[in-house]
């Protein structure tokens, strides 16, 4: 595959994965799509919690069993109740700020469109427009006139999604919903469909957003020696943020983490990741603040301890309908993931 066609294949995958709807507990559509993108020469299974576990033989057998990992689920909503005026009450699935919920269009699992808002600013009093409405005070309007009508159109327990168009914009940027962590899934699919130097396991996990639950089962089911988590991480390189709280920057390459709120990463692997990226000519950076967390938190403590590293794409506005990334960072993360396999295999 030429470099150009590989790049266009990567963004085609990211776009298609971003548009799929799969919140924690509802990853089925994402899993089925990923299955259609796998090469013929791999072993595929789905474990009981829903993780998609893929093994593919490489040119050689590694000394260490290596597992790459990205999560399929995204943040979203679940319908909790249908109230008298025909609107739907809901709870967030995963961590969502109320400020990115108000004034949004959403899509129910059934495909039905809804909107989230409240009484207009014209009817707020005093400094009420300084106050961000809480999620529990909001509801989804699907155009039902009353409760009876709404009950025919939606059901309690139904999942609901941000309506965030995937598109490229600016000078090489992309935006869309669910880039956390469909980008990691796309990177693993690129690796699976390319040349593998060593036998490698790839796990597409479930339920990361509600507490890295799928990864806990995946670790037990695969029992790798080394895990590499492919993720997104908060970039705060935007106006209004102080320098020391920037965390990482778009355009500065793959993020190799030494610590976040869930994991103190294996020191040798952290150095190996930076060194492998450097030697491969891949732009890299680290997180300058201990923030966020990912499947590493479950993996590194599992089955008697798995040596774990995380490679992340710096991302603005995580857990919103418009996550923003720079394309070159995504490519850098794919290149870094490929670059570490040789080293990890013989560590």
């Amino acid at each position: 595959m030429s470099e150009n066609s590989e790049t266009s294949r990567l963004y085609d995958l990211i776009g298609r994965l971003s548009r799929l709807c799969g919140t924690s507990g509802d990853e089925g559509d994402v899993r089925e799509f990923i299955k259609t993108q796998l090469p013929a020469d791999c072993e595929v299974s789905t474990d009981s919690i829903g993780n998609l576990i893929v093994f593919r033989k490489g040119s050689k057998t590694p000394k260490n069993k290596i597992m790459f990992c990205a999560h399929m689920d995204e943040v979203g909503f679940i319908i909790t109740d249908i109230v008298s005026d025909g609107r739907l009450k809901f709870a967030p699935v995963g961590g969502i700020s109320p400020s990115v919920v108000f004034g949004r269009r959403v899509v129910l699992k059934s495909g039905r469109v809804g909107v989230i808002a409240a009484k207009p600013i014209h009817h707020l009093h005093g400094d009420d427009d300084d106050k961000q409405p809480k999620i529990e005070d909001l509801s989804i309007d699907i155009g039902a006139a009353d409760k009876e009508e709404a009950e025919k159109l939606a059901e309690r327990g139904e999942y609901c999604y941000f309506d965030g168009a995937y598109e490229e914009f600016g000078e090489g940027f992309i935006k869309g919903k669910a880039l956390d962590d469909r980008v990691g899934c796309a990177i693993m699919l690129m690796m699976l469909n390319g040349e593998l130097p060593y036998d490698t396991w790839f796990v597409f996990t479930v339920q990361e957003e509600i507490g890295t639950r799928g990864a806990a089962c995946a670790a037990y089911n695969v029992k790798p020696d080394i895990a590499v988590v492919l993720e997104t991480t908060t970039a705060c390189d935007i106006p209004g943020s102080e320098e020391e709280k920037t965390v990482c920057r778009l355009g500065s390459g793959v993020v190799v983490s030494f610590m976040d709120r869930s994991t103190i990463y294996d020191r040798e692997l952290y150095r190996l990741g930076r060194d492998a990226a450097e030697k491969a000519g891949v732009k890299h950076q680290t997180k300058s603040l201990v923030a966020g967390g990912n499947d590493s938190g479950a993996l590194h403590k599992a089955v008697g301890g798995i040596r774990t590293m995380a490679l992340s794409v710096p991302t603005r506005y995580l857990h919103s309908p418009a996550c923003v990334m720079k394309k070159e960072d995504t490519q850098a993360t794919l290149a870094a993931a490929r670059a570490v396999i040789d080293r990890l295999a013989v560590l």
């Binding site: 965030g164 914009f169 935006k175 106006p239 709280k245 506005y317 995580l318 309908p321």
Partner: peptide, 29 residues
């Protein structure tokens, strides 16, 4: 103002429409 954070927007320029997002600080900041 309740709906500004992370909204997708279109800037209508003389040479055509371009896309953008209203920048919003993450929870840690």
């Amino acid at each position: 103002r309740r709906l500004y954070a992370a909204q997708s927007v279109t800037v209508h320029t003389e040479s055509g429409d371009i896309r953008g997002v209203i920048s919003t600080l993450p929870p840690h900041v």
